[in-house]
């Protein structure tokens, strides 16, 4: 039982809350990466509602599971779920991207409780997570390490360096979730730098690899709970960029665009109609 269970009837309700905050924050800040944040909202909701061990009153508790949000550009969603989970006041989200705020557009861990590591430049999260996972195993600490990574991020060589390392050292306490929304900065991943067969690549690197609907909370949770001893795990979560707002879904433009007042109104309406 965590605070989220008192506030939200289920993880789907939390996902609506995360999406609502993402849209509101990016609108207020005239920010970007709306589509990237929306595609990962269900992943965050399932993790924080149903899966992770965390301690908002003592964020550095050594029993906590470590989350490295490697697709730092989608950070609005992470801040939103952390506020909902009680790491800081929800009102603080209004400071997102404002002058002097620690809530920068790419994930910042300085002065932001619950954020494990600052990211933004792609391909940094997995090596760092592998180092943490290695250390936890050395210390016989059963905490888990979860990395949330973009699919376009898999273009980065450091991802594959770390994939080799994690398999070589049997880091079965490490899980990568790839937000497979199939769109990167200038277009479709398969047009720019084809990733398929993506699951086959991770399997070939000796990872226990699963592929699931990244918006289906039951399947996501099942995938999170499955493990194979001695192997790191990769969950390819098939998602839709901009998920939850019809006119943003699968639209490259919403990698960049800020919703104006009228668009925000329409988007929030869609979310509350679609939610509970």
């Amino acid at each position: 039982m965590n605070d989220l269970h008192k506030k939200y009837i289920d993880s789907a309700a939390l996902a609506v809350k995360i999406r609502t905050e993402i849209l509101q924050m990016i609108h207020n800040a005239h920010g970007s990466h709306t589509g990237s944040a929306l595609s990962a909202a269900d992943i965050l909701a399932v993790l924080y509602y149903s899966f992770l061990n965390y301690f908002p009153d003592n964020p550095d508790d050594d029993r906590r599971d470590r989350v490295i949000f490697s697709k730092g550009h989608g950070g609005a969603g992470l801040y939103a779920v952390l506020a909902a989970a009680g790491f800081f006041q929800e009102e603080e989200l209004t400071a997102y991207c404002q002058n002097g705020s620690f809530l920068s557009g790419h994930v910042n861990s300085h002065q932001v409780p619950g954020v494990e590591f600052s990211t933004g430049s792609l391909g940094h999260g997995l090596p760092v997570a592998a180092g943490i996972a290695y250390s936890l195993k050395m210390r016989k600490n059963p905490a888990r390490v979860i990395v949330i990574m973009g699919d376009g991020e898999c273009d980065e060589g450091a991802v594959w360096e770390a994939a080799l390392f994690a398999a070589a050292h049997h880091l079965d306490n490490l899980t990568v979730i790839i937000d497979r929304n199939r769109i990167q900065a200038l277009g479709n991943t398969e047009d720019i730098m084809p990733l398929e067969p993506l699951a086959g690549k991770w399997q070939a690197f000796n990872w226990y690899t699963l592929q699931t609907d990244g918006h289906d909370h039951i399947r996501l949770l099942e995938a999170l709970k499955e493990n194979l001893p001695d192997k790191p795990k990769c969950i390819i979560a098939d998602t839709v960029k901009g998920k939850g707002v019809s006119f943003m879904e699968n639209q490259l433009l919403w990698h960049y665009r800020t919703p104006d007042g009228e668009q925000l109104f329409r988007a929030l309406n869609e979310l509350t109609e679609g939610g509970r």
């Binding site: 494990e116 590591f117 391909g123 940094h124 997995l126 090596p127 760092v128 997570a129 592998a130 180092g131 943490i132 996972a133 290695y134 250390s135 060589g157 450091a158 360096e161 770390a162 080799l164 390392f165």
Partner: peptide
């Protein structure tokens, strides 16, 4: 790149 990242993770 991985060595430096792993070092950061171990240090964290």
């Amino acid at each position: 790149q991985n060595m430096a990242g792993v070092a950061a993770g171990l240090a964290l």
